[in-house]
Amino acid sequence: MRRVLDPVLQIVPTVLVVSLIAFLLTSLLPGDAALSRLGLDATQEQLDTMREQMGLNDPVPVRYLYWLGRAVTGDLGNSLRSGEPVAEVLARRIPVTLELAVFGTGLALLIGVPLGILAAVRRDSWIDVATNLFALSGMAIPFFWLGLLLIMFFSLHLQWLPPSGYVPFFENPVRNLHLMALPSLTIAVAFAATLMRQTRASMLEVLNADYIRTAHAKGTPPIRVILHHALRNALIPIITVLGLQMGTLLGGAIVTETVFGLPGLGRMMVDGIYKRDFPIVQGALITIVVAIVVTNLLTDLCYRFVNPRIR
């Protein structure tokens, strides 16, 4: 039990530090929240009252503790624009990004791991060369460009899939999947490329191990040697990469959501920045960081599960 509990407790200070950074970033940014709320024709008096009301005159540490205290209870403040509680905005936005991340990761695993295995097993063959080419271009193409390319090809040229928009999954699953296909593919490609290269590298190393020779000497079918004996060991570094890439994935989600007009966390943050809606930016930022920290925690637990030597 401590095996699970210890890493969970370890993330508390990380989240605290990140919340501080998120708070400082948004409160030190140029721009006046009171001004942006009241508009340019507000009088100095009105502005002063608003600043007082919003607590903007308190020293920064006080404001941080005040903000943190409320954040812990789930109150992340209200949007400066719409007045809607940030928590409610998040509740609407998180499912979109979560769906994008899960689909993207799933697609990346489905593409990257099998291709990596194939490239390692058929090393130096045309498959190896082709997959390597795919990996290099996949990592080199920027998200927004790939997204636009996919829209041009699948939406405008073939007219198979809609270019943008969002419908919640439980409202209309088919429509939802149609709409999510291109964004998911967009963020999956670069991720798949990284996973493929890692899979290939660790499979190559593992396939040379003594225990693989042992498995062959036992008369184990080649497929089983690869999937059961080799992949189980090769997974250890693959999982590490999976965890490390989460940040990149969510970064990609911000761009992708903008390109495809998805109302997710990324769009929320971008819009918040444009509109100087600081509570919104803080809420989105904290959520993304907590997501990354939690993913890393899950990776860590997964790692312990796959590798009996560090239990």
Partner: peptide, 19 residues
């Protein structure tokens, strides 16, 4: 292999699958 002909290797530390 493994049925009628079997083999034991030099390095017992690495010849068994660690996971």
């Amino acid at each position: 292999r493994g049925d009628e002909i079997a083999m034991v290797f030099q390095e017992p530390m690495t010849a068994l699958n660690p996971v």
